[in-house]
C-alpha cells in the first residue's frame, strides 16, 4: 500500500488517488507545427526508469488537486518534488 503525501491533505492511502504517469510532459505549444514523430513522442513516450521518477498524482477522493512527487520505482520510497 503506497501512502501518498498530498501536499494539501497530508498522507493518504493510494486508493484515494489516480495515477497520472510522468510529470512535466507539457502539451505542445503548437501541435500543428510538430512532425508526426514529435507528436507521437508527446502522445506515447514516457520515461519508465528503474529508480527515481517524477510522477503525477490526482487526489480524486480528496481535494481533487493534481500534484507531482518523486518516487523510487524499485523501492517505492517517496520524496516530494
Amino acid at each position: 500500500m503506497l501512502r501518498i503525501p498530498c501536499p494539501h491533505c497530508g498522507e493518504r492511502d493510494e486508493t484515494e488517488f489516480h495515477y497520472g504517469g510522468e510529470a512535466g510532459v507539457d502539451y505542445p505549444a503548437d501541435p500543428s507545427a510538430l512532425a508526426d514523430d514529435a507528436w507521437a513522442a508527446y502522445l506515447f513516450l514516457r520515461a519508465n526508469p528503474r529508480g527515481w521518477f517524477r510522477e503525477r498524482w490526482f487526489h480524486g477522493s480528496g481535494c481533487r488537486l493534481w500534484f507531482a512527487l518523486e518516487r523510487h520505482t524499485v523501492t517505492d520510497e517517496i520524496r516530494s518534488a
Binding site: 500500500m1 504517469g21 519508465n48 528503474r50 521518477f53 510522477e55 520505482t73 524499485v74 523501492t75
Partner: peptide
C-alpha cells in the same frame, strides 16, 4: 503506477 519492485498493493 509504474513499478519495478515486484510488489503490488
Amino acid at each position: 503506477h509504474v513499478g519495478y519492485g515486484q510488489r503490488g498493493s
